[in-house]
């Protein structure tokens, strides 16, 4: 198998960050992707993988909620809490995974599924930043600009992403691919600037690394859609 490792140059690896004295590690080693393996849509055990969402773009706003494998995940989630309200955060995340964002209608459906008042669910959902109340691009790019990253040039990284995607913060790019936002501390302060794109962190990101990261994301998206086309044919 070809080495997945990208050579480290000037703090600009474009993937999981500076490996320092651990240069032998591959991207898969650092991210743990081999260990994690593939997860079926219905999740595996109720204790673990049912409760976290797939954070990938491409939700369908008109898709039905909680059918098929999603119904299985909903039931597994419910089995882990002493009451239905306890399941609210993971179920909101599940709804967002299916539809891409949480419209008032989606929140009302979640409320109905859990026996809660729609206004209550909206009150909770609007408290948390990771629930998108409006659609976002296929790739949600979150650039940490808090102090530890800021000291190391995070503002320039944010500007580079905005310029390269031709967007203002929070906007969806013309091709529907990108939404770039400023994020609060992502908890990767030793690897500035930390950037989260959907389910992955990109670390030690410099403004110069931005085109290469976007190129990689575009290539991956193209590979995903051609795989989907093959499956469909």
């Amino acid at each position: 198998m070809a080495e997945e490792r990208t050579p480290l140059q000037g703090g600009n690896p474009g993937w999981a960050g500076e490996t320092g004295e651990y240069g032998h590690l591959t991207e898969a080693d650092v991210r743990g992707t081999t260990y994690v393996g593939k997860r079926p849509p219905e999740g595996t055990s109720p204790g673990a993988s049912c409760s976290y969402p797939y954070q990938v773009g491409g939700g369908r706003p008109d898709a039905p909620l909680f059918e098929g494998p999603y119904r299985e995940r909903l039931d597994k989630i419910l089995s882990r809490y002493p009451n239905r309200q306890g399941a609210l955060l993971p179920v909101l995340a599940l709804a967002q995974e299916i539809r891409g964002h949480l419209s008032p209608e989606s929140m009302a459906e979640v409320a109905a599924a859990l026996g809660l008042a729609p206004a209550y669910v909206r009150g909770v959902a609007t408290f948390y930043t990771m629930y998108h109340k409006r659609p976002v691009g296929e790739h949600l790019v979150q650039v940490c600009t808090n102090v530890a990253c800021n000291l190391c040039g995070a503002d320039e990284v944010l500007r580079a992403f905005l310029a390269a995607t031709g967007t203002e913060p929070g906007q969806i790019s013309a091709d529907g691919q990108y939404t770039v936002i400023e994020a609060e501390c992502l908890g990767a302060c030793g690897f500035p600037t930390a950037v989260q794109v959907n389910d992955r962190y990109f670390e030690n990101v410099s403004p110069e690394a931005v085109p290469a990261i976007l190129e990689r994301l575009a290539q991956e998206a193209a590979a995903r859609s051609s795989a989907a086309a093959r499956q469909g044919s």
Partner: peptide, 14 residues
């Protein structure tokens, strides 16, 4: 936001 560590911890729980 700790989606990558979450997947690792989830695997460990399994």
């Amino acid at each position: 936001e700790f989606f990558e560590p979450a997947q690792i911890v989830a695997r460990a729980i399994d």
